[in-house]
């Protein structure tokens, strides 16, 4: 039996840079009210959402990803050629193959990195981050580009008063690279496939192709069941991530939950008994729910506005269709 040389990675990994891209078109609630019987007050009170961004034809999944990634690469202080792997999390890229990650990698001017897409709904960023950390520490890539990108406006039923106002478009990206200190904690993640009907695409592409129904597929969810799971079950997962990182809520500077709905965020903060000093991301108010993109977009905005700073300790938690979830404590870049 031949002896196989072990791979050699970095001792630890960290997020080195973050970037975001929000489409140019800002869509206020008034536009949503053209197709549903509701009110600005109702939408704000149920979700906290005031505006969201919708992508134009030119703001494709690849184009938004490239914008966000360029900023993340610059923020990290590396060059595209140094990237060894590109991971894209999305549920709204409508071409099954090839993976959009390869086109993004090529257009960014990287060399020949490993490049692939993952599907983990609103937990996609946490899943990608966890894979990236593994690659860096294991030695398969020195620098990994993780992108969360969605055009959820393409999967929104504008006539469904329960969901029409929720979703937005955008891209968020981070560079994960080597570190001498642990700056990405253990991930607490998992799936609950028995709840796969709670958040889902209304019809499969196959059913749509075969003519039934005639309505383009959209994302639908059972609001109360999602709320209960997101608030009360995810608060437990968030606590487990703090425990796994060996810290308490008192040690946190920032809380960046998936930006699903501000009511979920409020209730999570209460259930977790987060101290007053913890800065809570509320990007959902002006960006809507952008699924896999929401956490890096919120992270980028908190850092850009100065509400959070480099070196802060942040708890990030994503949760969504699957149902799937991922929570990790990180040091902000």
């Amino acid at each position: 039996m031949s002896k196989i040389k072990p791979s050699q990675g970095a001792p630890y990994a960290r997020i080195m840079g973050v970037g975001g891209y929000r489409p140019t078109r800002v869509v206020p609630n008034e536009v949503i009210l053209e197709t549903i019987d509701s009110s600005d007050e109702w939408i704000r009170s149920r979700s906290g959402i005031q505006t969201r961004h919708w992508a134009s034809d030119e703001e494709t999944v690849a184009a938004m990803s490239i914008e966000a990634s360029g900023k993340a690469i610059a923020d990290a202080g590396i060059t595209p050629e140094q990237i060894g792997a590109v991971i894209v999390s999305t549920v709204s890229h409508f071409k099954q193959t090839p993976a959009i990650a390869t086109e993004i990698a090529d257009r960014l001017g990287t060399g020949k990195p490993a490049a692939f897409d993952i599907s983990a709904g609103c937990a996609g960023f946490g899943y990608g981050l966890t894979l990236a950390k593994g690659l860096v520490v294991e030695g398969s890539a020195e620098y990994v580009l993780v992108i969360g990108v969605e055009r959820l406006s393409d999967l929104t039923d504008l006539h469904d008063r329960a969901t029409a106002f929720l979703f937005g478009d955008g891209a968020g990206a981070v560079i994960v690279g080597p570190s001498k200190e642990p700056k990405i904690g253990p991930t607490v993640w998992g799936s609950e496939g028995d709840k796969s009907d709670t958040i889902k695409q209304t019809e499969s592409w196959e059913a749509y192709r075969n003519g039934a129904p005639d309505k383009f597929p959209a994302i639908t969810q059972e609001g109360q069941a999602v709320f209960r799971w997101a608030v009360f079950e995810m608060a437990k997962v968030a606590q487990q991530a703090l425990d796994a990182a060996g810290i308490t809520a008192d040690d946190l500077d920032v809380f960046i939950p998936h930006q699903a709905n501000e009511r979920i965020i409020d209730s999570m903060v209460k259930t977790l008994k987060l101290p007053e000093h913890v800065m809570v991301a509320r990007d959902v108010r002006t960006t809507g729910n952008t699924s896999a993109a929401s956490i890096p977009l919120a992270m980028e905005r908190l850092l850009a506005t100065g509400e959070a700073k480099s070196g802060d300790t942040a708890l990030v938690i994503g949760f969504g269709a699957g149902l799937v979830y991922a929570a990790t404590v990180v040091t902000l870049p």
């Binding site: 149920r46 609001g223 109360q224 709320f227 209960r228 608030v231 009511r263 209730s267």
Partner: peptide
């Protein structure tokens, strides 16, 4: 008590 607050009441 709206539908989301109802979930909090129930829990």
């Amino acid at each position: 008590v709206d539908s989301l607050s109802m979930v909090e009441v129930v829990v």
